[in-house]
Computed example of a mutant assay.
Amino acid sequence: MIVRIMGEGQVELADSHFAELNKLDDELLAEMESGDSPGFRTTLHALLDKVRELGTPLPDDALEPSELILPSPDATLEEVREMLSDDGLIPG
């Protein structure tokens, strides 16, 4: 799956990594619902770091359609809330 981190670029992630990413996504969703801004910031960075760690960066000139778009590391709680689906940022 091709994942875009807003403001950074795209990475290719194997579907096998999504169970691990969904745990962080669930934690992020809970922190957003409770208004835990410091926890939200920590978990957002952990989620993006894990995507970078597990993914293979695509070249900057690659024009692949992104199947998943994640917020930038400096996104606010309100900006991320607007990006959410019922499942969080990561479907599944």
Results as ranks from 00 to 15, higher is better:
1 M>W: 04
2 I>K: 05
3 V>S: 10
5 I>P: 07
6 M>R: 14
6 M>T: 13
7 G>M: 07
7 G>R: 06
7 G>H: 04
8 E>I: 07
9 G>T: 08
9 G>A: 07
9 G>Y: 08
10 Q>K: 12
13 L>F: 10
14 A>F: 03
15 D>K: 09
16 S>W: 01
17 H>W: 04
20 E>L: 15
22 N>D: 13
23 K>A: 14
24 L>Q: 05
24 L>I: 06
25 D>V: 01
25 D>C: 11
27 E>D: 15
27 E>H: 09
29 L>A: 05
30 A>L: 07
31 E>A: 01
32 M>E: 01
36 D>I: 00
36 D>C: 00
36 D>R: 03
38 P>G: 02
38 P>R: 04
39 G>C: 01
39 G>Y: 00
40 F>I: 00
41 R>H: 05
41 R>Y: 00
42 T>I: 11
42 T>V: 11
44 L>A: 02
45 H>F: 09
45 H>N: 14
47 L>K: 08
48 L>R: 05
48 L>V: 05
49 D>S: 14
49 D>T: 12
50 K>T: 15
50 K>Q: 14
51 V>D: 04
52 R>F: 02
53 E>Q: 15
55 G>E: 08
56 T>E: 14
58 L>C: 11
59 P>L: 08
60 D>C: 01
60 D>M: 13
61 D>F: 12
62 A>N: 12
66 S>W: 06
67 E>G: 15
69 I>V: 15
70 L>Y: 07
71 P>M: 11
72 S>I: 02
73 P>Y: 06
73 P>H: 08
76 T>M: 09
78 E>Y: 10
78 E>F: 12
81 R>L: 11
82 E>F: 11
83 M>T: 09
83 M>P: 09
84 L>R: 10
85 S>W: 06
86 D>P: 02
87 D>C: 05
87 D>L: 14
89 L>T: 01
89 L>K: 03
90 I>K: 06
91 P>R: 14
91 P>T: 07
91 P>I: 06
92 G>V: 06
